[in-house]
Simulated assay, not measured.
Amino acid sequence: MDIVTREHRSRMMSGIRGKNTGPELAVRKAAHALGYRFRLHRKDLSGSPDLVFPARNTVIFVHGCYWHRHEGCRYCYNPKSNVEFWTEKFKNNVARDQRVGQELQQGGWRVVTLWECETADDDGLRKRLKQIFRS
């Protein structure tokens, strides 16, 4: 049983953004502060990656733990209502992520996924970005 009406839930869900999210802005801020330069949401690349580092042939996707099913994460829970719909939705999201990643790799790109939960710790995020670009 949902604690809000269907109309209210619909309004809430329609407000969820796909670009310029809080976690994405945190990654952009950290990358820029470290001197890494990037492009945003290049539509000519499969999946329109959140950050594109052309000089390093690297793309970064900043995935929400809930929507993209970050296994083992506390934010990756299953809804209790409309279970069939959500199961299919999540399955399709994960399949699309895998397909897009393979297409980009075949095009010569290194694909990195940063999870929403990783962006909460600024120091940890900076270390992770340094680690990504060291290799």
Rank of each mutant, 00 (worst) to 15 (best):
M1H: 12
D2F: 08
D2A: 14
T5D: 14
R6E: 15
R9T: 06
S10E: 08
M12R: 09
M12G: 06
M13E: 05
M13N: 09
G15E: 10
R17P: 04
R17Q: 13
G18M: 04
G18Q: 11
N20R: 12
P23E: 03
A26K: 13
V27I: 12
R28C: 04
K29Y: 05
K29G: 05
A30P: 09
H32D: 11
A33I: 01
L34C: 14
L34G: 10
G35H: 11
R37Y: 12
F38C: 01
L40K: 12
H41T: 03
R42V: 14
R42C: 15
S48W: 03
S48P: 02
P49N: 07
P49G: 06
P49F: 03
D50E: 00
D50R: 01
D50W: 04
V52N: 03
P54C: 11
R56Q: 15
N57Q: 14
N57C: 12
N57P: 00
T58W: 08
T58N: 02
V59N: 09
V59K: 04
F61W: 02
F61T: 06
F61A: 02
V62Y: 08
V62R: 06
H63L: 09
H63E: 10
C65R: 03
C65A: 05
W67Y: 07
H68F: 13
H68Y: 11
H68L: 10
H70V: 12
H70I: 09
E71G: 01
G72T: 09
G72E: 06
G72W: 13
C73G: 05
C73E: 09
C73A: 04
C73F: 00
R74C: 03
C76P: 04
P79R: 13
P79G: 13
K80E: 13
N82I: 05
V83G: 06
V83Y: 09
F85Y: 15
F85G: 13
F85W: 14
E88R: 14
K91F: 12
K91S: 15
V94A: 07
A95I: 11
R96N: 13
R96G: 08
Q98K: 13
R99S: 11
G101K: 03
Q102D: 06
Q102C: 05
E103P: 00
L104W: 01
L104T: 03
L104S: 04
Q106N: 14
G108V: 12
G108P: 11
G108S: 09
W109K: 10
W109A: 05
V111Q: 00
V111E: 01
V111M: 05
T113A: 05
T113W: 06
T113Q: 07
T113G: 03
L114C: 02
L114E: 03
L114I: 15
L114G: 03
W115M: 10
W115H: 07
E116C: 10
E116T: 05
E118A: 08
T119C: 13
T119D: 04
A120W: 04
A120E: 14
D121F: 01
D121I: 08
D123P: 02
G124Q: 09
L125N: 00
L125Y: 02
R126Q: 15
R126D: 00
R128F: 01
Q131Y: 11
I132G: 04
F133Q: 02
F133N: 01
F133S: 03
R134L: 11
S135Q: 06
S135V: 04
S135T: 09
